[in-house]
Computed example of a mutant assay.
Amino acid sequence: MDYKGRRIWIIGASAGIGEALARMLAGHGAHLILSARNEEALAALAKDCNGSQILPLDLARPKTLAEAVKALSLKGTSLDAIICTAALYDPGRVVDIDPVNAEAMVRVNILGTIDVARRCPSLLRDGGQLVLFGSVAGYIGLPKGQPYSATKAAVNNLAETLAVELAPRVDVRLVCPGFVETRLTERNDFPMPAIVTPDEAAKAVLRGMQKRGFEIHFPRRFTFVMKLVRVLPYVLSLRLIRRLR
């Protein structure tokens, strides 16, 4: 995809990979719609992105997404891509889970993504891309990964379903990053192998969107190892994962 002149909606644009994607796409001449909860951060970002349109919303509040889709529909907006990076993150051991935080993650990471998948494809032109962010954390249950890993496993599964249900009109892509340097991963108290910057992550996403294929995963020196662990019999994979404790 040549991004010059393309209309792209980024949900979760105010920080992290979403912000890096916005800046790169604007540099390529794309026309952007930027969404997130933080309207002030969106407004500041829009100034750096050729005066992009901002459309604040919160995936924890389904009404806000419905209103955003309605507003774009009334304008007759036809999009080339919708990229949803929005997610909450609160890793930890299952025994230490905060039920309130867990419920919030389910609301945003799973139900919010389902809302995006249900409401937004109608805005895409034929052949447009719906890009959902799962995670390598969703490949297999890891120590200290819950409940975030469980929500991302659900997103991975949802994207697989959508790739079949929405074909051939919508080109569904699943992005599974490894560790990325963001304000979210700053909370991790364990080594993060092959960690990349948001800019490196954004470059990998855009390269993947320009190629054929379903999944965009990176950095591959880490993700291929995790893919191998996932396909091993449990008697072997769980033995390996126990060593991570």
Rank of each mutant, 00 (worst) to 15 (best):
T64H: 01
T64F: 02
T64G: 00
T64L: 00
L65F: 09
L65S: 02
L65K: 00
A66C: 03
A66W: 05
A66R: 01
A66Q: 03
E67W: 01
E67K: 03
A68P: 04
A68Q: 07
A68V: 07
A68I: 05
V69H: 13
A71L: 12
A71R: 14
A71D: 13
A71Y: 11
L72T: 00
S73G: 11
L74Y: 11
L74S: 13
L74P: 07
L74Q: 15
K75V: 10
K75N: 15
K75P: 11
K75E: 15
G76L: 11
G76R: 09
G76A: 14
G76K: 10
T77K: 10
T77G: 09
S78P: 05
S78M: 08
S78C: 11
L79H: 03
L79M: 09
D80K: 01
A81S: 11
A81H: 03
A81Q: 09
A81T: 06
I82K: 07
I82Y: 13
I82S: 10
I82Q: 13
I83V: 14
I83P: 01
I83E: 01
I83R: 02
C84L: 10
C84V: 12
C84H: 15
C84D: 14
T85G: 07
T85E: 11
A86M: 01
A86P: 07
A86K: 08
A87Q: 05
L88R: 11
L88D: 11
L88C: 09
L88S: 11
Y89G: 03
Y89S: 07
Y89K: 00
D90H: 14
D90T: 14
D90W: 14
P91H: 05
P91C: 02
P91L: 06
P91V: 04
G92W: 03
G92Q: 06
R93N: 14
R93M: 10
R93A: 14
V94Y: 02
V94M: 07
V95G: 10
V95S: 15
V95C: 12
V95E: 15
V95A: 15
V95H: 13
D96R: 03
D96T: 04
D96Q: 04
I97K: 04
I97S: 14
I97G: 06
D98A: 11
D98K: 09
P99W: 10
P99L: 09
P99Y: 08
N101G: 12
N101E: 13
E103I: 02
E103H: 11
E103V: 04
E103D: 12
E103L: 12
A104G: 04
A104F: 06
M105A: 02
M105W: 08
M105V: 08
M105I: 08
M105K: 10
V106W: 14
V106R: 07
R107Q: 01
R107W: 02
R107I: 00
R107G: 08
V108E: 12
V108T: 09
V108G: 06
N109G: 08
N109Q: 01
I110D: 00
I110M: 05
I110A: 01
L111Q: 03
G112Y: 08
G112V: 05
T113P: 01
T113A: 05
I114D: 07
I114P: 07
I114F: 00
D115Y: 08
D115S: 15
D115N: 15
V116G: 05
V116I: 13
A117H: 04
A117Q: 03
A117L: 08
A117S: 07
